[in-house]
Nucleic acid binder design. Structure first.
Length: 776
DNA sequence: GCGCTTTGATTTTTT
DNA sequence: ATCAAAGCGC
C-alpha cells in the first residue's frame, strides 16, 4: 500500500520523528543523518495519515535551494501535491521569502505601498551614505558599513528606532541612533525595505495586529523549521507567534553546525525552544548515512573539542574507507596544483568531477584555484563570489525595472539616471536630491516634474519643486523623465522581459553595450541570460491574459532580490564535468564524494578575526566540522606554508588538524609527491630562506617597543609609547612631534624605525590619544 | 559634465 | 593587490 512507503527504509528514530503527530517536536539531526528525508516523509505523513491540507503546512528552510529540494522530495512521496488542482500548494519558503509574501499581500499593514522594493547590500550602502550626507556626519568617523551592521543587529534583536534611541549610552550611540532614524526615513520615502526589515516588519505586524496574527495562526496548522541552529531570535519569534494556536511546531537542527552567529543566528534558540515548550518531544538522529567511518571519526574528534556543546556521537554502518589526507603545500598555488593532481587520480577511482568540491574559508581563496584550473583546462563552477544579479549591467537593467515598479525607489534611480551617460552629473543629482529632500518626496517626483526650459519644477498640479539648474541639465533630466514615463506606461501591458527589451533599446543601453569593445560581449551575454530568466519566470508563473503584468513584475523583482547563488547552483547537466568551488558557509547542506578543504592554517581557519575569542574559535571549529562532514568517500585537508607572498602571511598549520587522531589520517601521499617535484625549484630555496622569519606573530612586537623613534609618511617623526599584538596585526601607539598621539595598525601604517630605544629608558608620558583607526 | 589619474582604504562568512 | 572615491584637466 502507498502509505507504507512513508516508513519504508526509515530507522526507528527517523520513524519516530515522522510519526509524531501533535505538539512541539525538536529533531536534533547530525550531518548526513537523513534530515531532509525525514522532513519530507513527515510532510507526507501529515498529509496522508493526519489528513492535513498541504497549504496549511508551512515549511521554512535556509535557502531557496533547500526549499526546492524539500518540495521535490515531498512531491515524489505524495504525488497528489503536484496534480493540477493543488499545484504548488505546499508552502516551502525561506524566512525572507515568506515574510516578503506576507508584506506583498498587505503592504499597507506595514506602512508600505504595493510594489515596494527590497534593498540589497549595495542599495543599503548607498542609502546610508546619503543619510550620512544629509545629517552631515563624517563617514570616516562613522563608517557606513559598521553603522549598517549595528542597525542590522538592532533589527534582528527586535529593537526599532525608538527603542534604540531610548537606550543610548555613549555619544557614538547617540549618533548611530540619529542615523538609524534617518536611514529608516530614507527607506520609508523610497518605499523600500532592507533584508532585516522583511523580518522585522512582519514581526511587528504580527505582534501588533491581532486580526492579522489570527489569520496566519489559523491558516498554518503545522510549522516545520529547518536549520534551526541558524535562525535568529527575530525569526524564531515570528515562528513562535504563528505556531501559538496549534502548537504544532517542529524544528530541525544541529547545534554543532551553527555557523551563522555573525548574522545574528543564535544557537541558544534550541534551549529557548525547550524552555518555551517543555512538553516538546526530542528525537536525536545520530546515525550518519553519508560519510565513511574514518571521515566521521575525524570530524567527530574535531568537534569534540568544543566546550559549549551537547555531547553527541555520530556513528555509521558505512565502510571504514580511506584515511583523511593531510598535506602542507608551499603556497596557495601549489596547494591548487596538488588538488588537481589528486583529482586526476580520483578519475580512476570512479569519482566524478561533478562530485568533487574544493572548500575554503573566504571567497578570495578561490582565485588561486581558478587560475590553476584554467591552466590545466579543468572545468569548474564557482559558487558565490560575484553574483549574477550583482553584476553591473544586470543590476542596471534590474534597476530600470525596479524604478518602474516602485517610482519612489531612490537607490535605483540614482544608479541609472545617468546610465548610459546622458549628461546628468553629480551636481545635477545633488540638486535634485536637495529639492526632493526639502519636499519630502522621492527623487523621481522631482525628476518627472521638470518642465522644459525654466528653472522651476512643477508637480502634477500641486506646488512646484524649485530647482536651480541650467537649461542643459534640465533637458537631460527631462529626457530621462520621458523615458521613465514611457516605461511606466508600457508596464501596464508588457511582460517583464518585453519591458526590459524596451528599456535597453530606449535608454541607449543596448548601443552602449555594443560599443563596449572590452566587456561588451560578456555584458550582452549576461543581459541575454537575464532576459531569458525573466521569460522563464513568466512561464513558470503561468502568466496568462488574466495575469496582471504589474503583479508579475513585482514578483519577478522579489524573486531576483531573494535568490542566492547556491540556489541557482544545480543547473547541472552540462556542468557534470566541473568541480565545485565553494565557501564552507555555502557548503552547508550539500554533500560530495570527495571534498578538498584548503587553507587549514591558523589565521584562516580559524580566521584571524575570530582567533582571540573562545566562542568564536568554537564557531570556526564548527565550520571546519561542517566542511569535513560534507564528504562521502574522500576527505583532504590542505594548508599552505605561505600564502599571499606579498604580505608574507605565514600561518601555522590549523589547530584543527592536530585534533584529528593519527589513526584516521594519512600524511604520506601528497607530501611525497611535492618533495619529489619541488626540491630544486626556486620556491623551495626561497622557503628555506624564509624560515627564520616565519613566526610572524612575534615579529611586529619585536620590531617596535616603547621609546623607539619612528617616522611616519604623514605624521612625520615620533616616539613609540606602546605596542601590542592585535588580531594578527600589531597596534602601535606613537606620539608624533606636533601631531598628537596616534594609534596605528602596523600592517597598514607607513611606519619605519629610526632609532631603537635604549634598554630601560622609560616611555614618554601622554595625556590624550587621537584614534586614527577606529577599531570596531 | 566627463573621463582619466591618483589616492586611500580595504580582506569573513550572506538571506 | 584591488577597488572605490576624490582630484584634475579638458
Amino acid at each position: 500500500m502507498l502509505t507504507d512507503d512513508i516508513f519504508e527504509g526509515l530507522s526507528p528514530p527517523q520513524q519516530e520523528a515522522v510519526k509524531h503527530s501533535d505538539g512541539p517536536l525538536l529533531i536534533v539531526a547530525g550531518p548526513g543523518s537523513g534530515k531532509t528525508r525525514v522532513m519530507a516523509h513527515r510532510v507526507a505523513y501529515l498529509v496522508r495519515h493526519l489528513h492535513a491540507k498541504p497549504w496549511r503546512i508551512l515549511a521554512v528552510t535556509f535557502t531557496n535551494k533547500a526549499a526546492r529540494e524539500l518540495r521535490e522530495r515531498c512531491e515524489s512521496l505524495v504525488p497528489e501535491l503536484i496534480d493540477s488542482f493543488t499545484a504548488q500548494v505546499l508552502p516551502v519558503r525561506t524566512f525572507h521569502s515568506f515574510c516578503a509574501l506576507v508584506l506583498r499581500r498587505k503592504p499597507e499593514h506595514a506602512g508600505l505601498e504595493p510594489g515596494f522594493s527590497i534593498y540589497d547590500d549595495d542599495d543599503q550602502h548607498r542609502t546610508m551614505r546619503r543619510t550620512l550626507e544629509d545629517l552631515e556626519i563624517d563617514p570616516k568617523r562613522f563608517p557606513p558599513r559598521s553603522i549598517l551592521s549595528t542597525i542590522s543587529s538592532a533589527k534582528n534583536s527586535m529593537i526599532g528606532v525608538e527603542q534604540f534611541a531610548s537606550t543610548v549610552e555613549t555619544y557614538g550611540d547617540e549618533v548611530v541612533a540619529r542615523v538609524y532614524e534617518g536611514y529608516e526615513r530614507a527607506l520609508h520615502t523610497a518605499n523600500a525595505v532592507d533584508f532585516d526589515d522583511l523580518l522585522l516588519k512582519v514581526f511587528q505586524l504580527l505582534s501588533s495586529q491581532q486580526d492579522v496574527l489570527e489569520e496566519y495562526q489559523n491558516r498554518y496548522e503545522y510549522l516545520l523549521l529547518d536549520e534551526f541552529q541558524d535562525t535568529n531570535p527575530l525569526q524564531f519569534q515570528i515562528a513562535r507567534l504563528i505556531a501559538e494556536r496549534h502548537r504544532n511546531i517542529c524544528v530541525v537542527g544541529d547545534p554543532d553546525q551553527s555557523i551563522y552567529s555573525w548574522r545574528h543566528a543564535d544557537p541558544a534558540n534550541i534551549s529557548e525552544f525547550q524552555r518555551l515548550y517543555p512538553d516538546a518531544t526530542i528525537v536525536t538522529l545520530d546515525q550518519c548515512y553519508r560519510s565513511t567511518q574514518l571521515i566521521l571519526e575525524a570530524a567527530d574528534s574535531v568537534i569534540a573539542n568544543n566546550s559549549e556543546r551537547l555531547e553527541k556521537h555520530l556513528w555509521t554502518e558505512n565502510i571504514r574507507g580511506e584515511p583523511v589526507a593531510i598535506a602542507e603545500a608551499y603556497d596557495e598555488n601549489e596547494e591548487a596544483r596538488l588538488i588537481l593532481d589528486e583529482i586526476g587520480k580520483l578519475d580512476e577511482e570512479d569519482i566524478k568531477r561533478g562530485e568533487i568540491a574544493v572548500m575554503y574559508r573566504i571567497n578570495a581563496q578561490s582565485r588561486a584555484m581558478e587560475t590553476a584550473c584554467n591552466q590545466r583546462g579543468v572545468p569548474y563552477r564557482l559558487v558565490g563570489g560575484l553574483k549574477f544579479y550583482q553584476r553591473k549591467e544586470v543590476k542596471d537593467l534590474i534597476c530600470f525595472l525596479r524604478l518602474v515598479n516602485n517610482p519612489a525607489d531612490d537607490a535605483a534611480l540614482e544608479r541609472i539616471i545617468n546610465v548610459p551617460p546622458r549628461g546628468i552629473g553629480q551636481r545635477t543629482v545633488d540638486e535634485l536630491r536637495r529639492a526632493a529632500r526639502e519636499n519630502g518626496v522621492p527623487l523621481l517626483d522631482v525628476t518627472m516634474s521638470l518642465q522644459g526650459n525654466g528653472n522651476e519644477a512643477l508637480t502634477n498640479g500641486a506646488a512646484p519643486y524649485r530647482v536651480q539648474l541650467k537649461t542643459r541639465a534640465i533637458n537631460a533630466v527631462s529626457e530621462f523623465a520621458g523615458l521613465m514615463r514611457l516605461l511606466i506606461q508600457q508596464s501596464m501591458t508588457l511582460q517583464p522581459q518585453q519591458l526590459m527589451d524596451l528599456a535597453l533599446e530606449r535608454s541607449g543601453y543596448l548601443d552602449s553595450v555594443k560599443e563596449d569593445m572590452e566587456r561588451g560581449e560578456e555584458k550582452m551575454e549576461n543581459l541575454q541570460e537575464l532576459l531569458g530568466s525573466a521569460e522563464q519566470f513568466a512561464i513558470d508563473n503561468g502568466a496568462g491574459p488574466e495575469y496582471e503584468p504589474r503583479e508579475l513584475l513585482s514578483e519577478f523583482l522579489e524573486n531576483v532580490a531573494l535568490v542566492s547563488d547556491v540556489d541557482t547552483m544545480d543547473r547541472d547537466g552540462d556542468l557534470g564535468d566541473a568541480i565545485t568551488l565553494i565557501t564552507l558557509h555555502q557548503a552547508k547542506g550539500l554533500e560530495f564524494d570527495a571534498v578538498f578543504m584548503i587553507g587549514l592554517e591558523e589565521g584562516l581557519l580559524p580566521h584571524s578575526r575570530s582567533i582571540e575569542d573562545l566562542s568564536q574559535v568554537e564557531e570556526e571549529r564548527r565550520l571546519c566540522y561542517v566542511g569535513m562532514t560534507r564528504a562521502r568517500k574522500r576527505l583532504y585537508m590542505l594548508g599552505a606554508f605561505q600564502r599571499n607572498a606579498r604580505r608574507n602571511f605565514a600561518g601555522e598549520p590549523s589547530r584543527f588538524l592536530q585534533e584529528i587522531p593519527e589513526s584516521a589520517v594519512t600524511r604520506q601521499r601528497i607530501r611525497g609527491m611535492r618533495r619529489g617535484q619541488r626540491i630544486n625549484e626556486p620556491a623551495a630555496i626561497k622557503r628555506a630562506a624564509a624560515v627564520p622569519a616565519a613566526h610572524s606573530a612575534a615579529r611586529p612586537r619585536a620590531q617596535y617597543s616603547p621609546g623607539d623613534q619612528v617616522k611616519h609618511a604623514h605624521f612625520g617623526k615620533g616616539v613609540v609609547i606602546s605596542s601590542r599584538d592585535f588580531r594578527g596585526d600589531a597596534e602601535v601607539t606613537v606620539a608624533f612631534d606636533g601631531q598628537g598621539v596616534k594609534r596605528l595598525m602596523l600592517n597598514f601604517a607607513p611606519l619605519s624605525k629610526l632609532v631603537t630605544a635604549e634598554e630601560g629608558e622609560p616611555p614618554p608620558r601622554v595625556e590624550k590619544i587621537d584614534p586614527v583607526l577606529d577599531i570596531p
